[in-house]
Design a binder for these strands. Structure first.
Length: 804
DNA sequence: CTTCGTAAATTTTTT
DNA sequence: ATTTACGAAG
């Protein structure tokens, strides 16, 4: 029995790869996960590679878990066959369990499989104390991981307290985003300062510097640091780099098209020991194996860059042409979808210019046509989806709810769908949105744990110092914080200093002393208690549980259930990881995503964003909200490369479907509040072959859209001409007639696509879209040097540029 | 120090 | 429309 059995030629070539670089270009549904798991199993059992020498990067934690599970099954089957000469499933239960335990102990436990963030935070738990920072900052191995919210709060603090700036003008969210981008490029504050122009850019660099300092003071890292610090550490420390380079002889990266520069750098450092990949020659018993599909790259907003995949062969490879290369394999046979669905996907993606030429070849029958439904608004759309699915279930009794997914562009779209599904009694689960570990009560309890491990974590301390209430108020906290800042020591050092606390006197001192006692005694338990016991103690002894009980509202009931769930999660963590402790549990909690949590076993429809659907497949897929400005998003409409990314997202959505695909769009949609906005059918609908579609004629939509595009272009040209004409002293033309289509009869001013406007703060811009009409119009304007802004012309300080 | 009320912002996609 | 954030009163 071999792991090469039952594979096609290309898959076999990939799985059998032993040494050197290999790029596996794997189209949707071509069995790439199979190739990855089979290759790991093959390396271990056929090439006798030590599992500890393997590092495999997956895109989600869930994918990592599934890969480990599949590996265990594959290996169990082989061992059962080789040693007992019978199929694994016919072994008696006890034997099966024994075998699985053995495989876990000897193999899967030794493998490093996980996301970039999980793997490299693990590496930092070994070596971060040896990291030498250019600005003299340092961290210990007990570091906390801050989520996006924590990071933004820290930045808000810096903006308002340290720099005394208006957080409305300098939104913490935007600044965090700018800093995140810098980190993903590998830039330090100095570099950002040099690279950025203008006052604002320099200020952001300043915030960046203070933010790093603040993180270090808390002994904390943000998500980006989990990748950037390892890069810097591996660059600067030859010994540590050498150790990990020798350790990980076989690197595997899934979803390679969605890696960013920092992640690439990690891969390069580990595989070539910091050499230029083209100069690295010692590939004996060493490999770099990346799997991806440039057509499914959908994360450029977080600095993913699919040119890294496109350049792989130039970079690591033999630079030979596709036909004879040994460093690229293409998996083009699709085993997932019907021919109809594939043809639609191929046709759509052929509109993109930046890609590796690749066509998915169908291996399955034609299947049924793609169904398109036009609805009046988002409520009618939700009803239409529900009816469609009800009907489908009635006519196919063997179809389960879990076989169906509804995909949308933005999380906010789930609401109307949920309303409708509840009304019709259809079970569903929403993926995304609020993470389990982001719930307030969970974050509170985790903050206790973080503080126990990392006393420097002032963010966590401040979160819980008066939660539940202990009579420690704002003024007390301010005084303690001031003292800590003066002495440049962590807040906890002041709080735990009895002398210092006693000088405060009165009610707050009592509360503080009580709190200190609690933390100190919990700390003592840290060493000999299992995580779930410690969590239980925190919940009870902190008074958190009592407060929830005395509250006795429906909400507090829910919170209690969630805390019970947290204890269960800790127990599960202990069971699944021999070396599981509080630190590893906290790391798991910080890096888990909502999609990782959801159990797929229950029989319910899944609702999620198109982004979350990556890597999944369903017999029945519904995509809703196929409208211009929603999908593709309005932010992408005037930028061809982001429009191409939206198209890839649509390609991902379509290729999730195995049997049937249903598309929906509404001709009107309430976006926020009550404003109804007319919506045009998505450009992508007009890019699907007409003969594959049934239902509401897309042609009316597609054709109207094409006409609309032409109209916009005409308007733009006319506008220019009319300006020129005016300049030449001639009378203006029918451009106004055309423009009326877009602009309402608002008194005085009218706004139309293509118009130039002057904004008091942003300067000159051009209107790229209008939404709504009349008094309620809002406009999208592209200003120089920034993304499009959505403005309400009644409020925003803008003037038509023609009027000066 | 806490609670209650009003104001303001919110909607891209996420490890 | 719904949620979060801040400020005034208790």
């Amino acid at each position: 029995m071999s792991f090469l059995d039952g594979l096609n030629d290309a898959q076999r070539q990939a799985v059998d790869h032993l040494s050197g670089p290999l790029l596996v270009v794997a189209g949707a549904g071509s069995g790439k996960t199979r190739a990855l798991t089979h290759r790991i199993a093959h390396l271990i059992s056929h090439h006798c590679v030590d599992p500890a020498n393997i590092l495999a990067v997956t895109f989600t934690n869930k994918a990592a878990r599934e890969m480990k599970e599949r590996l265990e099954i594959l290996l169990a089957r082989k061992i059962a066959f080789d040693q007992f000469a019978q199929p694994y499933s016919t072994l008696e239960m006890g034997k099966q369990r024994e075998l699985r335990t053995r495989i876990y102990r000897e193999i899967t436990k030794e493998l490093w499989i996980g996301t970039f963030h999980a793997l490299f935070s693990r590496l930092l738990r070994f070596d971060i104390d040896k990291f030498v920072d250019t600005e003299g900052l340092s961290w210990t191995r007990q570091f906390s991981i801050y989520d996006e919210k924590d990071a933004q709060n820290l930045i808000k603090e810096i903006v308002t307290q340290d720099l005394q700036l208006d957080p409305k003008r300098f939104e913490p969210k935007k600044i965090r985003w700018a800093i995140s981008n810098a980190k993903n490029q590998g830039w330090m504050p100095e570099k950002l300062e040099v690279e950025s122009e203008g006052h604002r850019g320099k200020l952001i660099a300043k915030v960046y510097r203070l933010y790093r300092k603040s993180l270090a003071a808390n002994n904390a890292l943000d998500f980006d640091d989990l990748l950037l610090i390892p890069v810097q550490l591996l660059q600067q420390n030859e010994q540590i780099r050498g150790y990990w380079h020798n350790r990980f002889k076989h690197l595997l990266v899934d979803e390679y098209q969605d890696t960013n520069r920092t992640q690439y750098e990690l891969i390069r450092l580990l595989s070539t020991n910091n050499l230029q990949p083209s100069l690295f020659k010692s590939w004996d018993n060493r490999s770099i194996f990346v799997v991806g599909d440039a057509d499914q790259s959908i994360y450029s907003f977080r600095a993913a860059d699919f040119t890294i995949l496109m350049d792989f062969q130039n970079d690591f490879g033999d630079k030979k042409s596709d036909k004879i290369t040994k460093t690229m394999v293409k998996l083009e046979e699709n085993y997932r979808s019907t021919a109809t669905i594939l043809e639609a996907a191929n046709s759509l993606i052929s509109n993109n210019t930046e890609r590796i030429d690749k066509v998915l070849k169908a291996t399955r029958g034609e299947g049924s046509l793609i169904h398109l439904t036009r609805c009046d608004d988002e409520i009618a759309e939700a009803e239409a989806v529900t009816h469609r699915l009800k009907n489908l279930q009635r006519t196919n009794p063997e179809l389960n709810w879990r076989d169906i997914t509804i995909l949308y562009r933005t999380n906010a779209q789930s609401r109307s769908l949920e309303d409708s599904l509840v009304r019709w009694g259809i079970p569903y689960v929403v993926v995304g949105g609020l993470r389990f570990y982001d719930r307030r009560e969970i974050k509170d309890i985790l903050a206790y744990l973080k503080l126990l491990i990392n006393p420097a974590d002032t963010v966590s301390l401040l979160r819980i110092i008066n939660t539940p209430r202990r009579g420690i108020g704002k003024t007390t906290i301010q005084r303690l914080t001031d003292a800590a800042n003066q002495l440049s020591i962590p807040l906890w050092d002041i709080v735990s200093d009895h002398e210092a606390v006693r000088t405060l006197g009165g009610r707050s001192a009592k509360g503080l002393l009580q709190f200190c006692e609690l933390i100190t005694s919990l700390k003592e338990q840290l060493k000999n208690s299992k995580p779930h016991v410690l969590i239980q103690d925190v919940i009870e002894r902190s008074g958190y549980l009592n407060e929830l009980i005395s509250d006795a509202t429906e909400e507090s009931e829910e919170r209690r259930r969630n805390l019970q769930e947290l204890i269960n999660a800790a127990i599960q963590h202990e069971e699944e990881n021999d070396d599981g402790n509080i630190e590893t549990f906290l790391a798991t909690a910080a890096l888990a995503s909502d999609a990782d949590e959801k159990d797929t076993s229950s029989n319910r429809i899944t609702l999620m964003t198109l982004h979350s659907s990556k890597g999944l497949e369903f017999p029945v897929v519904c995509i809703v909200g196929m409208e211009q400005g929603l999908f593709p998003s309005y932010r992408s409409l005037d930028d061809s490369s982001s429009l191409e990314e939206e198209r890839r997202l649509c390609y991902v959505g379509i290729t999730r479907a195995k049997e049937q695909l249903f598309l929906f769009h509404a001709s009107e949609r309430r976006l926020w509040g009550g404003i109804r906005e007319p919506a045009l059918p998505s450009l992508f609908l007009s890019e699907l072959p007409e003969n594959l579609l049934k239902g509401d004629r897309p042609l009316s939509g597609g054709a109207a859209l094409r006409k609309e595009n032409r109209l916009e272009r005409l308007t733009r040209i006319d506008r220019k001409e009319s300006l020129e004409a005016l300049a030449g002293g001639e009378q203006s033309l029918p451009a106004n007639g055309l423009r009326k289509v877009h602009a309402g009869p608002s008194p005085g001013k009218s706004w139309a696509v293509g118009d130039q406007v002057i904004h008091a703060n942003f300067g000159l811009g051009e209107i790229t879209h209008t939404f709504g009409s009349g008094q309620k119009i809002s406009i999208a304007v592209k200003f120089e040097g920034m993304g499009p802004k959505i403005l309400d012309p009644r409020l925003a300080p803008i003037q038509p540029a023609g009027n000066i």
